[in-house]
Nucleic acid binder design. Structure first.
Lengths: 243, 243
DNA sequence: TAGTTGGCTGTACACTGTACATTCCCAGTA
DNA sequence: TACTGGGAATGTACAGTGTACAGCCAACTA
């Protein structure tokens, strides 16, 4: 997006920029290094970081690994980003830019469902990143727009400002929380069963209700799970909006 | 709970145990070290870790710091705990032991509200620990009991097993998510305003709805916030239970 | 052409989790 | 009482983390 230049000129290598100060008639001297990486920039760093996390997981995001990816020394990043914390904040806001706030079809509940679902999809597309919403969330411009649109719809539905704020937090908390919750595994033998194998730590007769719904518990993030929960909240909101 | 021995005998110092192998008539020889720490044990380690996190925050939980607290070498911990991951799992389950699953007054919604509220309170009492629910959750015996009781009440309310599972996840996600969400601060100048100062990153006219409810947004975890959201979900559940 | 500036580099440090080998203490047995 | 086997605690060490700091060198300004 305006940061890469002339990629058709340099073939597979993305690191060609002719060093200045050379006379024009000098073509190529293989003994010298005429190439430099693309200019570093905040957006390029953040995009590369998000890519890295999507590909290799959150644990793989180290300043060193990111620097390697960008063919640059680790400390070079610190000219564009205060610290790793800020980098993560920027990544979150980049992701939030993918949320579609523009849908205006249907009544307020329908629009709200679409908005939150879009939020959900953005998180799902970068589900590793969702685990970072902890301790503090720093809201950037994209985040602000999503929040504003959500509250707008709640007010449009007839909720009081106080109720709208609470409802916003309920939706926000549910949506982000859904992605923060990872796979649920029993305390022991986590390796043997990679998802819910609930009963491992307690004999079945002590947890009859879990037994009763057991097949529906596996697959924490199974398709439709999020929307079912969302519908429950929306139903509650409609009840509240109608007094 | 049966792990400390004779605490009334040793005064404030928790590190007095007479070294064996000394003749009984030898009273005290100050030149020798007769004292040893209390015997290490899984529960003692886990309790000390939870205390440490409650007092000094999650970041302060390092194996070295914990070992210092227990007056023991760092590696001694590894005789009782596989790794830090397992330690955290055990801490979570210890906290879940504080949830009150026994209330049986009122109808199923009332009981469910009380149960989830108790879960909320346990998390609030150790709110630093809540931030650890990421990536994976390993459920221990206390966690299983809480889950089982929740599902029992949902089934009692008339939900189908599939609906009960979805509803459980909605409640679970909301509750845990509520505590994972930390303070919300704007991207810039986070230091200057320690909670919501939303508008910093965008001019006010671009986020009119946020402006409209602004006073109700501050204080993410203000008293009552959790319960208002919970009531929304419970209202949705009642609607669902009644078809 | 001389001076300055700002992005990039290499080095270095404090700190993390934890593997490994060693030492020590204590219980149980002869 | 003396011996011994084994589990628990220790010290050392290592790889990997974020990032402070000082120097370097290309590129811009006068």
């Amino acid at each position: 997006m305006g940061y890469e230049k002339g990629s058709s000129l340099n073939d597979q290598s993305s690191t060609s920029r002719v060093r200045p100060g050379q006379p024009a008639w000098v073509d190529v001297d293989p003994s010298k290094d005429y190439t430099r990486p693309l200019p570093l920039s905040r957006p390029r760093i953040v995009r590369a970081a998000l890519q890295l996390v999507d590909d290799k997981g959150l644990a793989a995001l180290t300043m060193r690994a990111l620097a390697t990816e960008l063919e640059v020394s680790p400390m070079a990043l610190y000219n564009h980003v205060r610290d790793k914390d800020e980098l993560v904040d920027l990544m979150v806001d980049l992701m939030l830019g993918e949320v579609d706030c523009a849908a205006t079809e249907g009544d307020w509940v329908t629009q709200l469902r679409a908005l939150v679902h879009s939020y959900h999809q953005a998180l799902a597309a970068h589900h590793q990143l969702a685990r970072v919403y902890s301790a503090r969330v720093r809201i950037g411009p994209h985040g602000l727009l999503v929040i504003d649109r959500t509250i707008e719809l709640l007010l449009q539905g007839g909720l009081s400002p106080a109720d709208a704020a609470d409802a916003f937090f309920a939706l926000y908390t549910y949506t982000v929380g859904f992605h923060q919750i990872g796979h649920i595994v029993p305390l022991r033998d986590a390796a043997s069963q990679d998802e819910i194998g609930y009963y491992a730590a307690l004999p079945p007769e002590q947890i009859p209700s879990i037994q009763a719904v057991s097949p529906h518990l596996s697959g924490v993030h199974r398709p439709g799970r999020f929307d079912h929960g969302l519908d429950i909240i929306l139903a509650g909101l409609q009840a509240k909006a109608a007094h």
